[in-house]
Design a protein around this nucleic acid. Sequence first.
DNA 1: TAAGCTGTTCCGAGTGAACGAACACGATCG
DNA 2: CGATCGTGTTCGTTCACTCGGAACAGCTTA
Lengths: 268, 268
Amino acid sequence: MSGHTNDTPAETDGSGGSDRGGGISSVGRAFDIAELLATETTLGVTAVAEELGVAKSTAHDHLSTLAERGYVVRAPEGYRLGMEFLRLGEAARSRDEAYEIAREKVEKLANETNERSQFIVEEAGRAIYVHREVGPDAVHTDSAIGGHVPLYATAAGKALLSHHDDDRVRELVGDNLDPITDNTVTEVDALLAELETVRERGYATNCAENTPRLRAVGAPVELPDGRPLGAISVSGPTHRMKGERFESELPDLLLGTVNELELNIAYA
Amino acid sequence: MSGHTNDTPAETDGSGGSDRGGGISSVGRAFDIAELLATETTLGVTAVAEELGVAKSTAHDHLSTLAERGYVVRAPEGYRLGMEFLRLGEAARSRDEAYEIAREKVEKLANETNERSQFIVEEAGRAIYVHREVGPDAVHTDSAIGGHVPLYATAAGKALLSHHDDDRVRELVGDNLDPITDNTVTEVDALLAELETVRERGYATNCAENTPRLRAVGAPVELPDGRPLGAISVSGPTHRMKGERFESELPDLLLGTVNELELNIAYA
DNA sequence: TAAGCTGTTCCGAGTGAACGAACACGATCG
DNA sequence: CGATCGTGTTCGTTCACTCGGAACAGCTTA
Protein backbone atom coordinates (compact mmCIF):
# COMPACT_ATOMS: atom_id res chain seq x y z
CA MET A 1 0.00 0.00 0.00
CA SER A 2 2.90 2.35 0.53
CA GLY A 3 3.30 3.16 -3.12
CA HIS A 4 0.67 5.79 -3.26
CA THR A 5 1.05 8.51 -5.84
CA ASN A 6 0.35 11.62 -3.89
CA ASP A 7 -0.83 14.30 -6.25
CA THR A 8 -2.17 16.73 -3.74
CA PRO A 9 -1.18 20.15 -5.00
CA ALA A 10 1.18 22.18 -2.87
CA GLU A 11 -0.52 21.17 0.32
CA THR A 12 2.06 20.99 3.04
CA ASP A 13 0.07 18.64 5.13
CA GLY A 14 3.01 17.07 6.85
CA SER A 15 2.13 17.26 10.49
CA GLY A 16 -0.36 15.38 12.58
CA GLY A 17 -2.83 13.65 10.32
CA SER A 18 -0.47 10.75 9.83
CA ASP A 19 -2.36 9.53 6.78
CA ARG A 20 -5.51 8.37 8.41
CA GLY A 21 -6.58 5.12 6.82
CA GLY A 22 -5.81 6.51 3.42
CA GLY A 23 -8.53 4.61 1.67
CA ILE A 24 -10.37 1.33 1.62
CA SER A 25 -7.70 -1.08 0.55
CA SER A 26 -9.82 -3.83 -0.92
CA VAL A 27 -11.53 -1.31 -3.15
CA GLY A 28 -8.17 -0.09 -4.33
CA ARG A 29 -7.17 -3.67 -5.00
CA ALA A 30 -10.27 -4.23 -7.10
CA PHE A 31 -9.52 -1.21 -9.26
CA ASP A 32 -5.90 -2.29 -9.54
CA ILE A 33 -7.21 -5.45 -11.16
CA ALA A 34 -9.54 -3.54 -13.45
CA GLU A 35 -6.78 -1.21 -14.57
CA LEU A 36 -4.50 -4.14 -15.10
CA LEU A 37 -7.05 -5.81 -17.32
CA ALA A 38 -7.44 -2.53 -19.19
CA THR A 39 -3.87 -2.89 -20.41
CA GLU A 40 -3.48 -6.63 -20.71
CA THR A 41 -6.85 -7.52 -22.29
CA THR A 42 -6.81 -11.05 -20.89
CA LEU A 43 -5.38 -12.49 -17.70
CA GLY A 44 -5.90 -15.57 -15.58
CA VAL A 45 -6.23 -15.75 -11.82
CA THR A 46 -2.63 -16.72 -11.34
CA ALA A 47 -1.34 -13.97 -13.58
CA VAL A 48 -3.36 -11.36 -11.75
CA ALA A 49 -2.14 -12.62 -8.40
CA GLU A 50 1.47 -12.46 -9.52
CA GLU A 51 1.11 -9.05 -11.09
CA LEU A 52 -0.40 -7.52 -7.97
CA GLY A 53 1.70 -9.49 -5.52
CA VAL A 54 -1.25 -11.00 -3.66
CA ALA A 55 -2.32 -14.53 -2.88
CA LYS A 56 -3.98 -16.49 -5.62
CA SER A 57 -7.08 -16.88 -3.49
CA THR A 58 -7.27 -13.14 -3.02
CA ALA A 59 -7.15 -12.54 -6.76
CA HIS A 60 -9.79 -15.18 -7.17
CA ASP A 61 -12.10 -13.56 -4.63
CA HIS A 62 -11.75 -10.19 -6.31
CA LEU A 63 -12.26 -11.52 -9.80
CA SER A 64 -15.35 -13.43 -8.69
CA THR A 65 -16.77 -10.34 -7.09
CA LEU A 66 -16.12 -8.25 -10.17
CA ALA A 67 -17.47 -10.95 -12.47
CA GLU A 68 -20.67 -11.25 -10.48
CA ARG A 69 -21.46 -7.64 -11.26
CA GLY A 70 -20.30 -7.63 -14.85
CA TYR A 71 -17.11 -5.62 -14.38
CA VAL A 72 -15.06 -8.52 -15.65
CA VAL A 73 -16.10 -11.49 -17.75
CA ARG A 74 -14.75 -14.99 -18.02
CA ALA A 75 -13.51 -16.01 -21.43
CA PRO A 76 -11.94 -19.35 -22.31
CA GLU A 77 -8.52 -17.64 -22.25
CA GLY A 78 -9.05 -15.88 -18.95
CA TYR A 79 -10.70 -12.82 -17.52
CA ARG A 80 -11.39 -9.70 -19.56
CA LEU A 81 -12.74 -6.29 -18.72
CA GLY A 82 -16.53 -6.26 -18.62
CA MET A 83 -18.85 -3.94 -20.48
CA GLU A 84 -20.31 -2.66 -17.25
CA PHE A 85 -17.41 -0.23 -17.27
CA LEU A 86 -18.61 0.99 -20.61
CA ARG A 87 -21.99 1.70 -19.09
CA LEU A 88 -20.53 3.74 -16.26
CA GLY A 89 -18.10 5.42 -18.61
CA GLU A 90 -20.92 6.56 -20.83
CA ALA A 91 -22.77 7.75 -17.75
CA ALA A 92 -19.76 9.85 -16.80
CA ARG A 93 -19.56 11.15 -20.34
CA SER A 94 -23.16 12.28 -20.25
CA ARG A 95 -23.21 13.45 -16.66
CA ASP A 96 -23.47 16.96 -18.04
CA GLU A 97 -25.96 17.65 -20.79
CA ALA A 98 -23.61 20.24 -22.21
CA TYR A 99 -21.08 17.53 -23.01
CA GLU A 100 -23.53 16.04 -25.51
CA ILE A 101 -24.03 19.39 -27.20
CA ALA A 102 -20.27 19.77 -27.36
CA ARG A 103 -20.12 16.48 -29.17
CA GLU A 104 -22.23 17.79 -32.03
CA LYS A 105 -19.88 20.71 -32.49
CA VAL A 106 -16.89 18.41 -32.45
CA GLU A 107 -18.44 16.39 -35.24
CA LYS A 108 -19.22 19.53 -37.18
CA LEU A 109 -15.65 20.78 -36.88
CA ALA A 110 -14.19 17.46 -37.94
CA ASN A 111 -16.43 17.35 -41.00
CA GLU A 112 -15.77 20.93 -42.03
CA THR A 113 -12.03 20.82 -41.57
CA ASN A 114 -11.41 17.17 -42.45
CA GLU A 115 -9.08 17.16 -39.48
CA ARG A 116 -9.40 15.80 -35.98
CA SER A 117 -11.48 17.61 -33.39
CA GLN A 118 -11.66 16.93 -29.69
CA PHE A 119 -13.52 18.07 -26.62
CA ILE A 120 -11.70 17.91 -23.31
CA VAL A 121 -12.52 18.68 -19.71
CA GLU A 122 -10.29 19.32 -16.75
CA GLU A 123 -10.23 16.74 -14.00
CA ALA A 124 -7.67 16.28 -11.25
CA GLY A 125 -5.46 18.87 -12.88
CA ARG A 126 -5.29 16.99 -16.15
CA ALA A 127 -6.99 17.26 -19.52
CA ILE A 128 -9.34 14.36 -20.22
CA TYR A 129 -10.48 13.48 -23.71
CA VAL A 130 -14.25 13.26 -23.67
CA HIS A 131 -15.23 13.45 -27.34
CA ARG A 132 -13.36 13.00 -30.55
CA GLU A 133 -14.28 12.96 -34.18
CA VAL A 134 -11.84 12.35 -36.96
CA GLY A 135 -12.26 13.75 -40.46
CA PRO A 136 -11.16 11.84 -43.53
CA ASP A 137 -7.69 13.39 -43.50
CA ALA A 138 -7.21 13.20 -39.75
CA VAL A 139 -4.11 11.71 -38.25
CA HIS A 140 -4.35 8.76 -35.92
CA THR A 141 -2.94 9.18 -32.45
CA ASP A 142 -2.74 6.93 -29.48
CA SER A 143 -4.53 9.26 -27.11
CA ALA A 144 -7.59 7.33 -26.03
CA ILE A 145 -10.98 8.63 -25.02
CA GLY A 146 -10.97 8.90 -21.25
CA GLY A 147 -7.20 9.20 -21.29
CA HIS A 148 -5.39 12.19 -19.88
CA VAL A 149 -2.70 14.60 -20.98
CA PRO A 150 -1.04 17.52 -19.20
CA LEU A 151 -3.07 20.70 -19.48
CA TYR A 152 0.00 22.76 -20.36
CA ALA A 153 0.94 20.69 -23.39
CA THR A 154 -2.19 20.86 -25.52
CA ALA A 155 -4.10 23.61 -27.28
CA ALA A 156 -7.36 22.78 -25.57
CA GLY A 157 -5.63 22.45 -22.21
CA LYS A 158 -4.07 25.88 -22.46
CA ALA A 159 -7.37 27.29 -23.62
CA LEU A 160 -8.93 25.87 -20.49
CA LEU A 161 -6.17 27.24 -18.28
CA SER A 162 -6.69 30.69 -19.74
CA HIS A 163 -9.95 30.89 -17.84
CA HIS A 164 -8.20 30.71 -14.50
CA ASP A 165 -6.07 33.30 -12.75
CA ASP A 166 -2.34 32.80 -12.36
CA ASP A 167 -2.51 31.33 -8.88
CA ARG A 168 -5.05 28.72 -9.88
CA VAL A 169 -3.01 27.88 -12.95
CA ARG A 170 0.02 27.26 -10.76
CA GLU A 171 -2.06 24.96 -8.60
CA LEU A 172 -3.36 23.04 -11.58
CA VAL A 173 -0.14 22.48 -13.46
CA GLY A 174 2.15 22.03 -10.48
CA ASP A 175 5.69 23.21 -10.03
CA ASN A 176 7.64 21.58 -12.79
CA LEU A 177 6.27 21.10 -16.26
CA ASP A 178 7.68 17.86 -17.60
CA PRO A 179 8.78 18.16 -21.21
CA ILE A 180 7.03 15.82 -23.62
CA THR A 181 8.56 16.99 -26.87
CA ASP A 182 11.30 19.50 -27.63
CA ASN A 183 8.65 22.18 -27.99
CA THR A 184 6.85 21.66 -24.70
CA VAL A 185 6.59 24.77 -22.56
CA THR A 186 8.48 23.90 -19.39
CA GLU A 187 8.67 27.27 -17.64
CA VAL A 188 5.65 28.29 -15.62
CA ASP A 189 6.31 31.96 -16.30
CA ALA A 190 6.43 31.35 -20.02
CA LEU A 191 3.17 29.48 -19.76
CA LEU A 192 1.53 32.32 -17.87
CA ALA A 193 2.72 34.81 -20.44
CA GLU A 194 1.33 32.67 -23.22
CA LEU A 195 -1.99 32.35 -21.42
CA GLU A 196 -2.21 36.14 -21.38
CA THR A 197 -2.03 36.10 -25.15
CA VAL A 198 -4.65 33.35 -25.23
CA ARG A 199 -6.99 35.52 -23.19
CA GLU A 200 -6.56 38.38 -25.62
CA ARG A 201 -7.23 36.58 -28.84
CA GLY A 202 -9.56 33.93 -27.43
CA TYR A 203 -7.80 30.78 -28.55
CA ALA A 204 -4.65 28.80 -27.85
CA THR A 205 -2.25 26.97 -30.11
CA ASN A 206 -0.11 23.89 -29.80
CA CYS A 207 2.91 23.61 -32.00
CA ALA A 208 4.14 20.03 -31.60
CA GLU A 209 4.32 20.48 -27.83
CA ASN A 210 2.68 17.16 -27.09
CA THR A 211 3.07 15.13 -30.27
CA PRO A 212 5.81 15.65 -32.84
CA ARG A 213 4.66 17.23 -36.09
CA LEU A 214 1.18 17.83 -34.71
CA ARG A 215 -0.31 21.30 -34.40
CA ALA A 216 -3.63 22.39 -33.01
CA VAL A 217 -5.83 25.34 -32.16
CA GLY A 218 -8.03 25.23 -29.08
CA ALA A 219 -10.71 27.42 -27.54
CA PRO A 220 -12.33 27.35 -24.12
CA VAL A 221 -16.04 26.69 -23.70
CA GLU A 222 -17.62 28.97 -21.17
CA LEU A 223 -20.76 28.29 -19.20
CA PRO A 224 -23.40 31.00 -18.79
CA ASP A 225 -22.15 31.69 -15.27
CA GLY A 226 -18.63 32.26 -16.53
CA ARG A 227 -17.11 29.01 -15.34
CA PRO A 228 -15.24 26.92 -17.90
CA LEU A 229 -16.93 23.73 -19.08
CA GLY A 230 -14.06 22.39 -21.13
CA ALA A 231 -12.33 23.18 -24.39
CA ILE A 232 -12.46 22.19 -28.04
CA SER A 233 -9.53 21.77 -30.36
CA VAL A 234 -8.82 21.05 -34.00
CA SER A 235 -5.53 19.35 -34.74
CA GLY A 236 -3.61 18.19 -37.77
CA PRO A 237 -0.17 17.62 -39.19
CA THR A 238 2.27 20.53 -39.34
CA HIS A 239 2.32 20.68 -43.10
CA ARG A 240 -1.39 21.46 -43.24
CA MET A 241 -1.48 23.57 -40.10
CA LYS A 242 0.35 26.69 -41.23
CA GLY A 243 -0.05 30.05 -42.92
CA GLU A 244 -3.44 31.60 -43.36
CA ARG A 245 -5.28 28.41 -42.45
CA PHE A 246 -3.55 28.01 -39.10
CA GLU A 247 -3.49 31.68 -38.22
CA SER A 248 -6.97 32.81 -39.12
CA GLU A 249 -9.17 30.32 -40.98
CA LEU A 250 -9.19 27.58 -38.38
CA PRO A 251 -9.23 29.93 -35.38
CA ASP A 252 -12.18 31.80 -36.86
CA LEU A 253 -14.09 28.64 -37.56
CA LEU A 254 -13.28 27.31 -34.11
CA LEU A 255 -14.29 30.46 -32.28
CA GLY A 256 -17.48 30.72 -34.27
CA THR A 257 -18.40 27.14 -33.51
CA VAL A 258 -17.61 27.50 -29.83
CA ASN A 259 -19.76 30.59 -29.75
CA GLU A 260 -22.64 28.61 -31.21
CA LEU A 261 -22.01 25.94 -28.64
CA GLU A 262 -22.11 28.39 -25.78
CA LEU A 263 -25.40 29.72 -27.03
CA ASN A 264 -26.82 26.23 -27.42
CA ILE A 265 -25.81 25.44 -23.87
CA ALA A 266 -27.24 28.66 -22.50
CA TYR A 267 -30.64 28.00 -24.05
CA ALA A 268 -30.86 24.25 -23.47
CA MET B 1 -24.10 -17.88 -10.97
CA SER B 2 -27.29 -19.30 -9.59
CA GLY B 3 -26.37 -22.81 -10.51
CA HIS B 4 -24.06 -23.19 -7.58
CA THR B 5 -24.28 -26.84 -6.67
CA ASN B 6 -23.63 -26.65 -3.02
CA ASP B 7 -23.28 -30.23 -1.88
CA THR B 8 -21.58 -29.67 1.40
CA PRO B 9 -23.07 -32.26 3.71
CA ALA B 10 -24.79 -31.35 6.94
CA GLU B 11 -24.78 -27.69 6.18
CA THR B 12 -26.61 -26.36 9.13
CA ASP B 13 -27.12 -22.79 8.23
CA GLY B 14 -27.36 -20.33 10.99
CA SER B 15 -23.98 -21.16 12.39
CA GLY B 16 -21.44 -18.42 12.17
CA GLY B 17 -19.84 -17.57 8.89
CA SER B 18 -21.41 -20.40 6.95
CA ASP B 19 -22.15 -18.40 3.84
CA ARG B 20 -18.69 -18.57 2.36
CA GLY B 21 -17.62 -15.39 0.64
CA GLY B 22 -20.27 -14.40 -1.83
CA GLY B 23 -18.15 -11.46 -2.80
CA ILE B 24 -15.97 -8.86 -1.23
CA SER B 25 -18.47 -6.60 0.41
CA SER B 26 -16.56 -3.34 0.44
CA VAL B 27 -15.89 -3.67 -3.27
CA GLY B 28 -19.56 -4.22 -3.86
CA ARG B 29 -20.31 -1.16 -1.77
CA ALA B 30 -17.94 0.93 -3.85
CA PHE B 31 -19.64 -0.09 -7.07
CA ASP B 32 -23.02 0.52 -5.50
CA ILE B 33 -21.92 4.10 -5.06
CA ALA B 34 -20.61 4.35 -8.59
CA GLU B 35 -23.81 2.96 -10.04
CA LEU B 36 -25.81 5.28 -7.87
CA LEU B 37 -23.88 8.26 -9.16
CA ALA B 38 -24.43 6.98 -12.69
CA THR B 39 -28.13 7.65 -12.26
CA GLU B 40 -28.18 10.66 -10.00
CA THR B 41 -25.38 12.71 -11.58
CA THR B 42 -24.58 14.52 -8.32
CA LEU B 43 -24.83 13.47 -4.72
CA GLY B 44 -23.35 14.53 -1.40
CA VAL B 45 -21.88 12.34 1.29
CA THR B 46 -25.05 12.40 3.34
CA ALA B 47 -27.25 11.56 0.38
CA VAL B 48 -25.07 8.60 -0.57
CA ALA B 49 -25.08 7.32 3.00
CA GLU B 50 -28.86 7.51 3.17
CA GLU B 51 -29.38 5.93 -0.22
CA LEU B 52 -27.19 2.95 0.60
CA GLY B 53 -28.20 2.71 4.22
CA VAL B 54 -24.70 3.02 5.63
CA ALA B 55 -23.06 5.36 8.10
CA LYS B 56 -22.04 8.77 6.87
CA SER B 57 -18.43 8.03 7.71
CA THR B 58 -18.54 4.89 5.61
CA ALA B 59 -19.86 6.76 2.62
CA HIS B 60 -17.16 9.34 3.19
CA ASP B 61 -14.42 6.71 3.27
CA HIS B 62 -15.64 5.15 0.06
CA LEU B 63 -16.04 8.43 -1.75
CA SER B 64 -12.58 9.53 -0.68
CA THR B 65 -11.09 6.29 -1.92
CA LEU B 66 -12.86 6.58 -5.24
CA ALA B 67 -11.97 10.24 -5.57
CA GLU B 68 -8.30 9.56 -4.92
CA ARG B 69 -8.19 7.41 -8.00
CA GLY B 70 -10.38 9.54 -10.22
CA TYR B 71 -13.48 7.36 -10.20
CA VAL B 72 -15.48 10.15 -8.66
CA VAL B 73 -14.79 13.86 -8.58
CA ARG B 74 -15.76 16.56 -6.16
CA ALA B 75 -17.84 19.36 -7.57
CA PRO B 76 -19.22 22.31 -5.63
CA GLU B 77 -22.63 20.60 -5.63
CA GLY B 78 -21.34 17.21 -4.54
CA TYR B 79 -19.69 14.15 -5.96
CA ARG B 80 -19.99 13.11 -9.59
CA LEU B 81 -18.86 10.13 -11.57
CA GLY B 82 -15.22 10.47 -12.63
CA MET B 83 -13.85 10.13 -16.13
CA GLU B 84 -11.63 7.26 -15.09
CA PHE B 85 -14.66 5.11 -15.75
CA LEU B 86 -14.66 6.43 -19.28
CA ARG B 87 -11.08 5.30 -19.66
CA LEU B 88 -11.84 1.78 -18.50
CA GLY B 89 -15.04 1.72 -20.51
CA GLU B 90 -13.16 2.56 -23.67
CA ALA B 91 -10.62 -0.09 -22.79
CA ALA B 92 -13.43 -2.63 -22.55
CA ARG B 93 -14.82 -1.39 -25.84
CA SER B 94 -11.50 -1.91 -27.56
CA ARG B 95 -10.51 -5.11 -25.79
CA ASP B 96 -11.09 -6.86 -29.08
CA GLU B 97 -9.64 -5.35 -32.21
CA ALA B 98 -12.59 -6.67 -34.19
CA TYR B 99 -14.91 -4.36 -32.25
CA GLU B 100 -13.17 -1.38 -33.83
CA ILE B 101 -13.58 -2.79 -37.31
CA ALA B 102 -17.23 -3.40 -36.52
CA ARG B 103 -17.55 0.25 -35.68
CA GLU B 104 -16.55 1.30 -39.18
CA LYS B 105 -19.25 -0.89 -40.65
CA VAL B 106 -21.81 0.51 -38.27
CA GLU B 107 -20.94 4.00 -39.45
CA LYS B 108 -21.14 2.92 -43.04
CA LEU B 109 -24.57 1.38 -42.56
CA ALA B 110 -25.89 4.44 -40.76
CA ASN B 111 -24.68 6.72 -43.53
CA GLU B 112 -26.02 4.57 -46.34
CA THR B 113 -29.41 3.95 -44.82
CA ASN B 114 -29.85 7.23 -42.96
CA GLU B 115 -31.17 5.08 -40.14
CA ARG B 116 -29.66 3.94 -36.88
CA SER B 117 -27.13 1.14 -36.81
CA GLN B 118 -25.76 -0.69 -33.80
CA PHE B 119 -23.23 -3.31 -32.89
CA ILE B 120 -23.93 -5.51 -29.90
CA VAL B 121 -22.17 -8.30 -28.09
CA GLU B 122 -23.47 -10.92 -25.70
CA GLU B 123 -22.40 -10.73 -22.10
CA ALA B 124 -23.95 -12.43 -19.10
CA GLY B 125 -26.85 -13.57 -21.24
CA ARG B 126 -27.76 -10.08 -22.32
CA ALA B 127 -27.18 -7.96 -25.38
CA ILE B 128 -24.84 -5.04 -24.74
CA TYR B 129 -24.71 -2.01 -26.99
CA VAL B 130 -21.10 -1.46 -27.96
CA HIS B 131 -21.29 0.85 -30.97
CA ARG B 132 -23.97 3.05 -32.42
CA GLU B 133 -24.19 5.49 -35.24
CA VAL B 134 -27.26 7.46 -36.11
CA GLY B 135 -28.07 8.65 -39.60
CA PRO B 136 -29.82 11.95 -40.25
CA ASP B 137 -33.27 10.36 -40.16
CA ALA B 138 -32.58 8.07 -37.24
CA VAL B 139 -34.90 7.93 -34.29
CA HIS B 140 -33.63 8.70 -30.83
CA THR B 141 -33.96 6.02 -28.21
CA ASP B 142 -33.01 5.82 -24.61
CA SER B 143 -30.88 2.72 -24.95
CA ALA B 144 -27.44 3.82 -23.85
CA ILE B 145 -24.08 2.57 -24.99
CA GLY B 146 -22.97 -0.03 -22.48
CA GLY B 147 -26.59 -0.67 -21.57
CA HIS B 148 -28.24 -4.03 -21.92
CA VAL B 149 -31.40 -5.47 -23.42
CA PRO B 150 -32.78 -8.99 -23.55
CA LEU B 151 -31.31 -11.02 -26.38
CA TYR B 152 -34.71 -12.35 -27.40
CA ALA B 153 -36.27 -8.95 -27.96
CA THR B 154 -33.96 -7.37 -30.50
CA ALA B 155 -32.98 -8.14 -34.06
CA ALA B 156 -29.28 -8.25 -33.31
CA GLY B 157 -29.89 -10.32 -30.20
CA LYS B 158 -31.84 -12.94 -32.10
CA ALA B 159 -29.21 -12.92 -34.81
CA LEU B 160 -26.64 -13.68 -32.15
CA LEU B 161 -28.75 -16.42 -30.63
CA SER B 162 -29.09 -18.07 -34.01
CA HIS B 163 -25.45 -19.08 -33.75
CA HIS B 164 -26.09 -21.28 -30.75
CA ASP B 165 -27.90 -24.58 -30.53
CA ASP B 166 -31.26 -24.85 -28.83
CA ASP B 167 -29.89 -25.94 -25.48
CA ARG B 168 -27.49 -23.06 -25.28
CA VAL B 169 -30.25 -20.66 -26.30
CA ARG B 170 -32.39 -21.92 -23.46
CA GLU B 171 -29.52 -21.32 -21.08
CA LEU B 172 -28.96 -17.81 -22.35
CA VAL B 173 -32.51 -16.53 -22.36
CA GLY B 174 -33.72 -18.36 -19.29
CA ASP B 175 -37.10 -19.89 -18.66
CA ASN B 176 -39.59 -17.11 -19.00
CA LEU B 177 -39.26 -14.36 -21.56
CA ASP B 178 -40.63 -11.21 -20.02
CA PRO B 179 -42.76 -9.24 -22.44
CA ILE B 180 -41.56 -5.72 -23.19
CA THR B 181 -44.10 -4.70 -25.78
CA ASP B 182 -47.21 -6.42 -27.11
CA ASN B 183 -45.12 -7.96 -29.86
CA THR B 184 -42.38 -9.48 -27.75
CA VAL B 185 -41.85 -13.19 -28.27
CA THR B 186 -42.60 -14.74 -24.90
CA GLU B 187 -42.65 -18.44 -25.76
CA VAL B 188 -39.31 -20.21 -25.87
CA ASP B 189 -40.55 -22.64 -28.51
CA ALA B 190 -41.71 -19.83 -30.73
CA LEU B 191 -38.31 -18.20 -30.31
CA LEU B 192 -36.51 -21.39 -31.26
CA ALA B 193 -38.70 -21.77 -34.33
CA GLU B 194 -37.96 -18.21 -35.36
CA LEU B 195 -34.24 -18.77 -34.87
CA GLU B 196 -34.44 -21.65 -37.30
CA THR B 197 -35.74 -19.23 -39.91
CA VAL B 198 -32.97 -16.82 -39.00
CA ARG B 199 -30.38 -19.50 -39.64
CA GLU B 200 -31.85 -20.20 -43.05
CA ARG B 201 -31.96 -16.66 -44.40
CA GLY B 202 -29.03 -15.32 -42.40
CA TYR B 203 -30.67 -12.38 -40.67
CA ALA B 204 -33.23 -11.68 -37.97
CA THR B 205 -35.96 -9.10 -37.69
CA ASN B 206 -37.54 -7.18 -34.87
CA CYS B 207 -41.05 -5.88 -35.34
CA ALA B 208 -41.66 -3.55 -32.41
CA GLU B 209 -40.78 -6.29 -29.96
CA ASN B 210 -38.62 -4.07 -27.80
CA THR B 211 -39.70 -0.54 -28.65
CA PRO B 212 -43.12 0.41 -29.99
CA ARG B 213 -43.18 1.40 -33.66
CA LEU B 214 -39.54 0.42 -34.10
CA ARG B 215 -38.44 -2.25 -36.54
CA ALA B 216 -35.01 -3.62 -37.25
CA VAL B 217 -32.99 -6.16 -39.18
CA GLY B 218 -29.96 -7.80 -37.59
CA ALA B 219 -27.22 -10.16 -38.68
CA PRO B 220 -24.66 -12.12 -36.69
CA VAL B 221 -20.94 -11.47 -37.07
CA GLU B 222 -18.96 -14.67 -37.20
CA LEU B 223 -15.31 -15.06 -36.30
CA PRO B 224 -12.98 -17.08 -38.52
CA ASP B 225 -13.19 -19.99 -36.08
CA GLY B 226 -16.96 -20.02 -36.29
CA ARG B 227 -17.69 -18.47 -32.92
CA PRO B 228 -19.99 -15.45 -32.85
CA LEU B 229 -18.37 -12.07 -32.16
CA GLY B 230 -21.57 -10.06 -31.93
CA ALA B 231 -24.26 -8.77 -34.22
CA ILE B 232 -25.12 -5.67 -36.22
CA SER B 233 -28.54 -4.19 -36.73
CA VAL B 234 -30.22 -1.39 -38.63
CA SER B 235 -33.38 0.03 -37.10
CA GLY B 236 -35.96 2.62 -37.95
CA PRO B 237 -39.60 3.59 -37.55
CA THR B 238 -42.26 1.20 -38.78
CA HIS B 239 -43.46 3.47 -41.55
CA ARG B 240 -40.08 3.38 -43.26
CA MET B 241 -39.28 -0.24 -42.40
CA LYS B 242 -41.71 -2.09 -44.62
CA GLY B 243 -42.21 -3.54 -48.07
CA GLU B 244 -39.30 -4.07 -50.39
CA ARG B 245 -36.95 -2.02 -48.27
CA PHE B 246 -37.53 -4.04 -45.12
CA GLU B 247 -37.75 -7.40 -46.83
CA SER B 248 -34.83 -7.31 -49.22
CA GLU B 249 -33.02 -3.98 -49.62
CA LEU B 250 -31.92 -3.54 -46.03
CA PRO B 251 -31.25 -7.24 -45.41
CA ASP B 252 -29.10 -7.42 -48.53
CA LEU B 253 -27.15 -4.34 -47.57
CA LEU B 254 -26.73 -5.60 -44.04
CA LEU B 255 -25.60 -9.07 -45.05
CA GLY B 256 -23.18 -7.67 -47.59
CA THR B 257 -21.68 -5.30 -45.03
CA VAL B 258 -21.37 -8.01 -42.41
CA ASN B 259 -19.67 -10.18 -44.98
CA GLU B 260 -17.14 -7.41 -45.61
CA LEU B 261 -16.68 -7.09 -41.88
CA GLU B 262 -16.00 -10.78 -41.43
CA LEU B 263 -13.41 -10.64 -44.18
CA ASN B 264 -11.78 -7.57 -42.66
CA ILE B 265 -11.59 -9.34 -39.33
CA ALA B 266 -10.18 -12.52 -40.83
CA TYR B 267 -7.35 -10.65 -42.52
CA ALA B 268 -6.55 -8.14 -39.78
C1' DT C 1 -26.16 34.43 18.15
C1' DA C 2 -28.19 30.19 17.64
C1' DA C 3 -29.79 26.47 15.02
C1' DG C 4 -29.49 23.58 11.07
C1' DC C 5 -27.24 21.71 7.47
C1' DT C 6 -23.14 20.09 5.36
C1' DG C 7 -18.56 17.26 5.27
C1' DT C 8 -14.84 15.72 8.20
C1' DT C 9 -12.30 13.32 11.93
C1' DC C 10 -11.74 10.27 15.73
C1' DC C 11 -11.85 5.75 18.12
C1' DG C 12 -13.14 1.40 19.46
C1' DA C 13 -15.10 -3.22 18.16
C1' DG C 14 -16.35 -7.00 15.54
C1' DT C 15 -16.12 -8.69 11.03
C1' DG C 16 -14.48 -10.31 7.04
C1' DA C 17 -10.45 -9.79 3.70
C1' DA C 18 -6.24 -11.87 2.95
C1' DC C 19 -3.37 -15.76 3.28
C1' DG C 20 -1.48 -20.46 2.54
C1' DA C 21 -2.36 -25.00 2.00
C1' DA C 22 -5.04 -28.49 0.25
C1' DC C 23 -8.11 -29.79 -3.45
C1' DA C 24 -9.97 -30.82 -8.27
C1' DC C 25 -9.37 -30.66 -13.06
C1' DG C 26 -7.23 -30.66 -17.58
C1' DA C 27 -3.29 -30.46 -20.66
C1' DT C 28 1.11 -31.86 -21.73
C1' DC C 29 4.47 -34.30 -20.98
C1' DG C 30 7.63 -38.61 -20.52
C1' DC D 1 -0.80 -44.78 -19.99
C1' DG D 2 0.81 -42.79 -15.59
C1' DA D 3 3.11 -38.67 -13.91
C1' DT D 4 3.72 -33.89 -13.72
C1' DC D 5 2.77 -29.46 -14.27
C1' DG D 6 -0.38 -25.99 -14.94
C1' DT D 7 -4.66 -24.04 -14.06
C1' DG D 8 -8.77 -22.47 -10.97
C1' DT D 9 -11.15 -23.57 -6.81
C1' DT D 10 -12.17 -24.39 -1.84
C1' DC D 11 -11.22 -24.33 3.04
C1' DG D 12 -9.85 -22.58 8.05
C1' DT D 13 -7.54 -19.37 10.64
C1' DT D 14 -6.05 -14.97 12.04
C1' DC D 15 -5.30 -10.30 12.36
C1' DA D 16 -5.87 -6.01 9.89
C1' DC D 17 -9.27 -3.24 8.50
C1' DT D 18 -13.84 -1.69 7.52
C1' DC D 19 -17.71 -0.04 9.65
C1' DG D 20 -20.57 2.73 12.72
C1' DG D 21 -21.48 6.16 16.13
C1' DA D 22 -20.33 10.34 18.20
C1' DA D 23 -17.84 14.44 18.32
C1' DC D 24 -15.90 18.18 15.50
C1' DA D 25 -15.63 21.89 11.98
C1' DG D 26 -17.35 25.07 8.33
C1' DC D 27 -21.01 27.28 6.13
C1' DT D 28 -25.56 29.09 5.30
C1' DT D 29 -30.02 30.12 7.27
C1' DA D 30 -33.35 31.87 10.70
